[in-house]
Write a protein that binds this DNA or RNA. Structure first.
Lengths: 233, 233
DNA sequence: ACCTGAACACCGTTCAAGT
DNA sequence: ACCTGAACACCGTTCAAGT
C-alpha cells in the first residue's frame, strides 16, 4: 500500500514531498482530498473510510474533521478535484468539433474513475457538476446556440453523459462481482419479458447492448441525436 | 426493549389493523417490499433500515433475509414496485403525444418519490429502469422511430428524465436541510465564478434556474430538444 | 489551534438457537 | 422451513484530553 508509486499528480506546491501516507507537513484539505481521490481510484467508494484515510495520512480519524465538514463534503471535493483536472486537459480540438471533443473527453474520464459517475449523479448541484455545466455551456456558445437555450441544451448533454457513464460503471461492477452478463440477462431481463405477454423488442436490444458492451457507441449516438435537436433551436 | 405490543403471533385470524402492510400473515417478499416503500416515502433512504423495517413488520431483523437477499435487492424491488405502478397508470393520451405524456407522467412520479430518482440512477440495470426503458421504447415505436435507433433514443430520453428528476430531489433536500437557495448560490456558485477570470454566463443562468425552481420547464424544454433530434433519424 | 484516539450511536449481515 | 434477536464487524462522527 505505502509503496504505491501510484500515478498521482505531479506539480505539487509542497516543497518537500514524501510518499503519500508519510506525515511530514501539516494536514491540509488539499492533501486530504488528494489522498481520498487515491483511495477512491483504487477501490471505489467502499474503500474511502475516515479510518483508512487517517491511516493513509498517518493521523487520527478525528483530525480530518478540522479540514472537511463531513464525508459528503469530502466526496464533493474529491469529485471537483478530478473534474477540474479533466476539464483542463480536454477540448483542444478545432471549434467545429469542440463540443464532441469535450463530451468524449469527459465521458472517458468519468468512465475511468468508476466512483465519479455515481457521485456526480447523486448530488447534481455539487461544484464538480456546476463546473461541467458551465464548460459545456461555453462550448455551446462557440457553437452558436442562443443564450436562451443554453442551459436546457447543456442539461440534456450532461445528463446523457452521466447516464451512460453510470451505466458503464454499473456494467463493470456487474461483471466484477457477479456471474457475468449472460447470467445477469437470464436472471433480470428474462423474468421481465416473461411477466407480460408483450413483445418487448427493446429489452432484447438491451440484452444485446449489454453483451456487446458498446457503451461508447451508445454514447456517441446519443450525442448526435442531441446535437441534431440543438441544431433546430 | 421490545416489551410486547405484539399481539398473538400465531393462531389469530381476526386481528385487523388499518395500517397498510400490517397483517399477521406469514412474512412474504411482497409485504416486506410494501413496507419498505412506505418507509421510503415517509422519510427517504435514511429511514429504511432493517431494524425499523422489522419493527414495522413485527418481526426480527434477521427474518427479512429469508425473503430478500440484501439491502440492494430490497431497494431494487421497492423501486420496481413503484415504477410498475406508475407505468400502469400513465400514457393514455392520443398517440401523437404519447411519448410526451409518458415522460411527464413518469417525471412527476419520480419527483414525488424523493428517494426513487437516486435509486434509479445509482443502479441503471435494475428491473425498474429496464421496465422504463422498454416502455419508452414501445412508445417510440408508435412514434415511428426506426428500430435501429430506438435504444439510443430511449436512452437519451430516460437519462434526461432521471437527471432532471434527481436535480429536483437534490434541490428539495437543499432547501430542507440547508439555509436556502440564495445561501447555496453564495456558498457554492460564487466561489466557482470568482476562481477564474472567465465570464461564466451559464453559471448565472444556473443560479436563476435554482431560485426560480422551474425544473418542470427545464424538463419540458429538454424533451423537445431530444424529440427534435429524434425526428431527424 | 491542531491533533489524538477512544467512545458513541448507529449500520448491514450472520448465525446459533428456538418453533 | 421459518423465525428470533443477540452478536459481529464495521461505519461516520464526537469530544475530552493532550501538544
Amino acid at each position: 500500500m505505502e509503496h504505491g508509486s501510484r500515478t498521482c499528480q505531479d506539480g505539487d506546491m509542497t516543497d518537500e514531498r514524501q510518499r503519500p501516507g508519510r506525515r511530514s507537513d501539516a494536514l491540509t484539505k488539499a492533501r486530504i482530498v488528494q489522498a481520498a481521490v487515491g483511495l477512491l481510484n483504487d477501490g471505489g467508494v467502499d474503500m474511502l473510510t475516515f479510518r483508512a484515510l487517517a491511516v493513509h495520512l498517518s493521523t487520527g480519524a478525528g483530525a480530518l474533521y478540522h479540514h472537511v465538514a463531513n464525508k459528503s463534503d469530502l466526496l464533493a471535493a474529491a469529485a471537483d478535484e478530478v473534474m477540474a483536472d479533466v476539464l483542463s486537459t480536454v477540448g483542444d480540438d478545432d471549434p467545429s468539433n469542440g463540443i464532441r471533443a469535450l463530451m468524449v473527453g469527459v465521458f472517458d474520464a468519468v468512465t475511468s474513475h468508476p466512483w465519479l459517475g455515481t457521485q456526480l449523479v447523486a448530488a447534481p448541484w455539487q461544484p464538480a457538476v456546476l463546473r461541467l455545466f458551465d464548460r459545456v455551456g461555453s462550448e455551446l456558445t462557440t457553437l452558436g446556440v442562443p443564450e436562451r437555450a443554453q442551459f436546457d441544451a447543456a442539461s440534456v448533454l450532461v445528463h446523457h453523459m452521466l447516464g451512460v457513464a453510470s451505466q458503464y460503471d454499473a456494467g463493470l461492477r456487474l461483471t466484477e462481482l457477479n456471474l457475468g452478463r449472460q447470467a445477469f440477462i437470464e436472471s433480470t431481463i428474462s423474468p421481465l419479458v416473461e411477466a407480460d405477454s408483450k413483445g418487448h423488442p427493446l429489452l432484447s436490444r438491451i440484452s444485446q447492448q449489454i453483451t456487446e458492451h458498446e457503451d461508447r457507441g451508445q454514447f456517441h449516438a446519443g450525442v448526435e441525436i442531441i446535437l441534431a435537436g440543438i441544431a433546430t433551436l
